[in-house]
Design a protein around this nucleic acid. Sequence first.
DNA 1: CATGAATGAGAGTTCATTCAT
DNA 2: AATGAATGAACTCTCATTCAT
Lengths: 212, 212, 212, 212
Amino acid sequence: MTADPETRLRADARRNRDQILAAARAIFAAQGAEVPMEEIARSAGVGVGTLYRRFPDRDALIRAVAVDNFDRVLRDAKAARDQESSDWDALIRLLHQSMELQLSIQLAMVSPRALVILKSDPAIKALRDELVLVMDAFVRGAQAEGRLRTDVATGDVAILFATLLRQMPGKGEEVARMATRRCIGIMIDGLRAVGGNEPLPGRPLTGADLDA
Amino acid sequence: MTADPETRLRADARRNRDQILAAARAIFAAQGAEVPMEEIARSAGVGVGTLYRRFPDRDALIRAVAVDNFDRVLRDAKAARDQESSDWDALIRLLHQSMELQLSIQLAMVSPRALVILKSDPAIKALRDELVLVMDAFVRGAQAEGRLRTDVATGDVAILFATLLRQMPGKGEEVARMATRRCIGIMIDGLRAVGGNEPLPGRPLTGADLDA
Amino acid sequence: MTADPETRLRADARRNRDQILAAARAIFAAQGAEVPMEEIARSAGVGVGTLYRRFPDRDALIRAVAVDNFDRVLRDAKAARDQESSDWDALIRLLHQSMELQLSIQLAMVSPRALVILKSDPAIKALRDELVLVMDAFVRGAQAEGRLRTDVATGDVAILFATLLRQMPGKGEEVARMATRRCIGIMIDGLRAVGGNEPLPGRPLTGADLDA
Amino acid sequence: MTADPETRLRADARRNRDQILAAARAIFAAQGAEVPMEEIARSAGVGVGTLYRRFPDRDALIRAVAVDNFDRVLRDAKAARDQESSDWDALIRLLHQSMELQLSIQLAMVSPRALVILKSDPAIKALRDELVLVMDAFVRGAQAEGRLRTDVATGDVAILFATLLRQMPGKGEEVARMATRRCIGIMIDGLRAVGGNEPLPGRPLTGADLDA
DNA sequence: CATGAATGAGAGTTCATTCAT
DNA sequence: AATGAATGAACTCTCATTCAT
């Protein structure tokens, strides 16, 4: 029960680890995943040596940031499930709320390199699978409630979700934020169950379609 | 009339230039803008030296790919304007059709580096401004037709457009293609003028908001 | 008091820095300033990376060698001033003695590139100005002593000095050494105050004339 | 008699060759011998291909410039011999006059690379040997006239000559010109046969000492 | 353990030389 | 024969990772 490696660290080592993770998250979000390791170390206030002691190479660091981030989203999703009165509302809340949380990892994921790395990590896969399950419930529930169009599945929502959460790089902070919110709004309106629209092309994308 | 510098190249040089541009477009689309120049050269079937003779450095190459690409989109937009019977239809067609054309540049734009470069290039700015103008006409026209919701402006559409066209990297080719089409469909439904939805947050984003 | 950046280096780093400087001095003297950085690194017994850590680019290295060298000459000049009994003797001693010290920098200065670099470096300018001042005193003093011809000024001496100290490249070590000494001897005889020679053309060149 | 390769060239080819040589001389004088071949070609108003047709590689070009230049100096020396009334006067005239002619080659010779090249060229060696012979006659004659100090030999004069003629790079044109003239004046005064000076160190350097 | 110095492989860029037009 | 395009080796510089202090 106390075997979790992170638990075993001395207090200062633990603090270093957290600082590095926070610095990496911020820098990945701002500049992508190709930043020199030295810059991350400096921004975390430690030497490169320390960074490498905690994370054996860049991939390990990217993986750790990703795990940390999926974790947050999953927590959000569960909170939404527990606190909202309908699945549609939970879904909407998650889409809106996670915008904040996702900013960093989404940008990181833009790097083709990062993608490959994340795909091969079982811890991340586990978190992702769990997240897919929760969303699956939202989707089916909201469709049962008659609020979500029935020609979509979890995969559609996840992809829209991931796509939209990639922050517009290079716009002013304020415009970027507003743009994201507005895009999500438009997308949500596009997801509503309303009569009369043409059906979407192809077939509903499921969680399994996300695996490549 | 034929003084255009590109026109003045010797036949073989011209062919090489085109091959390089095509290779760069494909590679940028597939792997982002940080690919080794040597790889681009190899894929174009020329030596690095040749690549550098045509494009003095990476920035110049990125710029050239971007110009080429904006050009295509602009052509598409004008064709849509000339051939469709309503502005709404023209807009829809552009969103659907340009999916193909945009793949490369959209990915390229993901690189923070590429962004900085493109912003400073007057030729690109000119093309972009012209594109914004054409889309502006579509947006106002479609709103006048009562088909496009009135709480959006050209900037909203452009951002959605750009965001969605970033291909999901890493999914299978077929799923990726379908996903893009479905996302565009959802987005279009979200843009329709229907009664009863809550208004979007913030204010309509104009073409000027895109300038950072 | 020990805040001098060079003093703050770790012992091994310090040693490396010195080795690099020594190697660069020797190689610049022997082959000019355009030698591959790798060769300098190898000759200093370090990797290129280390060289670049200490000196961010070739220019910085050239500057550092130049500063180091001016420093030595200046020390020599002051020692001559303090230890010789007349200004003429101090001047002669400096001309003879600095032959050793100047070998490197003089050759370095031959490179058009090096020149540009050195001109723009304030630390080097300061050292040079100080050196000019000391030589100025020698020149005026020796003229007052009646031993130095009065139709020359500090600039003349400095130029002769600099010109002669450029080692003949390519001769055997021994001949080169002897040649330099003999040239200096002839030049000194040419500088002596003797009656009956035609005055030199033009006007005495001052320290200010050296500034280009 | 007409087998001289240069004589066999067509008029336009001949003109090209001369333009290239003139351009190379000027550029070598101004910037040293490491200039891109393309720049020389451009400055000569021809393509690189043409340059390479005339001079198979850079070394050949350097050699040709050197031959051309030694030729001029030798012509000057012979003119001085034929027109001046004493050997001392001929020597002085040569030193003064060749300043003009030598500017280019002297700078070129500064390059360690150029030196190696020139040493191995028999045509250049022949010219140089002939020049040494003429100067030898000047030196012995002027010593017999009692005007040149007897503790120097041809090698000493040649080295002083070569050393002084390296223009100070980087000073203003006017100061540089004046400085050279004044240095030559001082050197000539140092060479005069006057009583009472200390003898020079070492032994007189002969023409043979120049061979390295 | 933390630090930051050292290493060396690899990326970008230049340029001598060759070769198609 | 002249031109300038193409090639690729060589060089400068950066950065991930290792290791001495």
